[in-house]
């Protein structure tokens, strides 16, 4: 039974992750007064890329090919550890969230290496920014999850998110969870390359971060990268949601449905943020991420006062 629920969650993630992208885009379209793209547009784009040929620069080596593959493998395995809607994950053990964070790190390491493999100065620039921002986001994520572990007296993701339920915010740990939600939202935005850290729609190579790193990837390679990014958004969204809106209705299927709706709500929220905010100046981004770490540290102190 446990295994089945884990597999159901993974299948849902694999199928529905691109939909988050279209929810964000539709929300932005509403704000801009446009009709917006069809709901299935991200799927069509992936399908189109898969069918295309691939162009390899003569500078590149095997590292360039390995980047997308390792990236998707790492995110896929991390998904096996992350629960949604209070359901148990496929695999769960104390300290598993560290493995999740480091698996995302593996994907990033290979993607950054692949970017440097092209020898392009733009991609080098993007890679340099990516490693800086992710190095600052990592403490915020891990400290937030540690604070949750201390509040829920459990060291595994499944245990943590099973212990946090609708009653939790009204307890003494409530203010701490409020802070953790803030910190994790910042990490969510930064890791998924959204405004105010990065602009996914920018068309100037000099200002891009994530997009510029994958300039040289094409065809199925690029499809893998896009899909991995969508899965990563699903994954970090589930982590955020479990702390931000732990609604439980007593029935497992309703809980799962609430989780899916919550993920959609997060996507809408991202769309609202992107429509209403400007991007931060690059020099201000580190401060934004450090502030997230600080929120999580304050939360730690509140949980264990």
């Amino acid at each position: 039974m446990l295994a089945i629920s884990g597999i159901v969650q993974i299948v849902l993630a694999l199928v529905l992750a691109p939909l988050l992208q279209s929810i964000i885009n539709r929300t932005k379209a509403v704000f801009a007064g446009r009709r917006g793209q069809p709901w299935l547009q991200p799927y069509r784009e992936l399908w189109k890329l898969v069918q295309k040929g691939t162009v390899y620069s003569r500078t590149t080596t095997a590292v360039f090919v390995a980047g997308p593959i390792v990236g998707i493998a790492a995110v896929g395995l991390a998904l096996a550890l992350v629960p949604i809607g209070g359901w148990p994950a496929l695999l769960s053990f104390p300290g598993d969230f560290l493995l999740v964070a480091y698996l995302l790190g593996v994907g990033r390491f290979f993607l950054v290496s692949a970017a440097l493999d092209t020898g392009s100065s733009f991609e080098g620039m993007g890679a340099s920014r990516e490693v800086l921002f992710s190095a600052l986001a990592e403490p915020a994520l891990l400290l937030s999850l540690t604070a949750l572990a201390a509040a829920s007296h459990s060291a595994s993701l499944t245990g943590i998110y099973a212990a946090i339920d609708s009653g939790m915010p009204a307890t003494a740990a409530g203010p701490a969870i409020f802070l953790i939600t803030g910190a994790m939202f910042v990490v969510f935005l930064a890791e998924n390359a959204r405004i105010p850290v990065d602009d996914p729609n920018t068309h100037l190579e000099l200002t891009m971060i994530h997009e510029v790193m994958v300039l040289d990837h094409s065809g199925p390679d690029f499809a893998l990268i896009q899909y991995a990014a969508q899965l990563k958004m699903w994954l970090l969204g589930s982590l955020l949601l479990g702390a931000a809106a732990p609604f439980r209705f007593g029935s497992a299927w309703l809980d799962l449905l609430a989780g899916l709706v919550g993920l959609g709500a997060i996507a809408v929220l991202v769309g609202i943020v992107e429509s209403s905010m400007a991007r931060l100046r690059l020099v201000r981004v580190p401060q934004f991420l450090i502030a997230a770490s600080i929120l999580s540290i304050v939360a730690l102190f509140l949980v264990m006062r």
């Binding site: 307890t171 409530g174 304050v298």
Partner: peptide, 16 residues
């Protein structure tokens, strides 16, 4: 006590 805690946390945040 919870609301007082919330207010105190907001005080911390404004100071930061």
């Amino acid at each position: 006590a919870l609301w007082l805690d919330v207010i105190l946390v907001l005080l911390i945040l404004t100071s930061l």
